[in-house]
Simulated assay, not measured.
Amino acid sequence: MKQILILILLVCSLAAQAQKPLSATLTNPKNLTLQVPKNPKIPPLNLPCKMANGLDRPFACEFRFDRLDFIGNDGKLLGSVVPKKVTLTLPFGKAKKTPPAGQDGPITYAVKGYFTRINKATFPVNKGYLIQSCPGPQCFDAQFTDISTLVTGLQIPATVGKQTMVPFDLTFAYRKGKEDELVVGVYLQNDVTTNSIKPKPGTVVAMHDKAEASTLLAPIVKKP
């Protein structure tokens, strides 16, 4: 009987010693820390732009149009065109250049265009970016439409998310009594990408489809 009691005590002692490491592991677990970078790099969304026909553009647009600021001949801001507000009333006497008094003709305003890069360039530019304008809500290739080149050889940083301001002169037709009928398109283009978008046989390419960013505006010029 004495030997049985000694054996039971020995088994209980061994069992208690075997449980200690398990108890320590459960009550004192190691701290695990998930390391997250403070400024994680999020790749840009390389989303396709929509062409005039509603289909995806073959190359992602490089820029987003932000606004056009019209500057008077006194250096003061006359007003701005933004994506949701394209109509702008401009004073005739604040233009940089005007047609002769009482006559119709070209009128010029100083403009500052703001564009934000949203994607890297599909093709590196050759001579640089260019800004063009043309009359009407739908402009096509230069051989079919009266297109004016406003800026050439423009170098724009490749940093995605960076906004760029480009100053230029914008000229359009002034017609007294028909000021509210005018529509003008402004187009920022990559000089390589724009020539890489080819029309299908028997068709033409809209300037909107070739541009990296564009806007239509409806300036209304008023005499005092």
Results as ranks from 00 to 15, higher is better:
85 K>H: 14
174 Y>T: 02
188 L>N: 09
60 A>F: 06
167 P>K: 06
147 I>L: 14
122 T>M: 12
172 F>A: 09
217 L>I: 02
95 A>N: 05
196 S>V: 00
171 T>S: 13
164 T>Q: 11
89 T>K: 14
54 G>H: 10
72 G>P: 01
192 V>A: 14
124 P>Y: 08
27 T>Q: 13
119 N>A: 15
18 A>T: 06
114 Y>L: 08
178 K>N: 09
55 L>P: 00
13 S>P: 00
65 F>L: 07
4 I>P: 00
21 P>K: 14
160 V>K: 10
91 P>G: 12
52 A>R: 09
90 L>G: 06
202 G>Q: 06
84 K>M: 11
210 K>I: 07
220 I>Y: 03
19 Q>V: 02
220 I>H: 04
124 P>N: 13
103 Q>V: 10
160 V>D: 12
126 N>D: 15
15 A>S: 10
89 T>D: 13
93 G>F: 05
166 V>H: 03
147 I>F: 02
143 Q>I: 01
183 V>Y: 07
72 G>W: 02
220 I>A: 06
215 T>L: 02
120 K>N: 15
136 G>L: 07
168 F>M: 09
5 L>M: 12
139 C>N: 05
49 C>Y: 05
191 D>M: 06
107 I>Q: 04
73 N>S: 08
8 I>K: 09
214 S>H: 06
151 V>Q: 12
22 L>D: 10
160 V>L: 11
10 L>H: 02
190 N>M: 11
25 T>N: 11
51 M>E: 14
62 E>L: 03
35 Q>D: 10
175 R>Y: 01
100 P>H: 08
54 G>C: 09
156 I>S: 04
27 T>I: 11
103 Q>R: 13
96 K>A: 15
170 L>Y: 01
204 V>F: 06
223 K>R: 12
203 T>Q: 15
12 C>V: 14
133 S>H: 06
43 P>L: 09
93 G>M: 09
44 P>Y: 08
47 L>W: 03
219 P>M: 07
107 I>E: 01
167 P>F: 02
37 P>S: 14
60 A>C: 13
56 D>N: 15
181 E>A: 11
31 N>A: 14
122 T>P: 00
19 Q>M: 13
93 G>W: 03
101 A>Q: 10
46 N>Q: 13
218 A>K: 14
31 N>G: 05
136 G>I: 02
150 L>R: 13
140 F>G: 03
203 T>K: 13
16 A>R: 05
64 R>G: 06
25 T>A: 15
28 N>T: 05
181 E>L: 09
38 K>C: 05
112 K>V: 07
221 V>E: 06
83 P>S: 09
15 A>F: 13
124 P>C: 10
138 Q>M: 15
218 A>V: 00
27 T>K: 10
172 F>W: 11
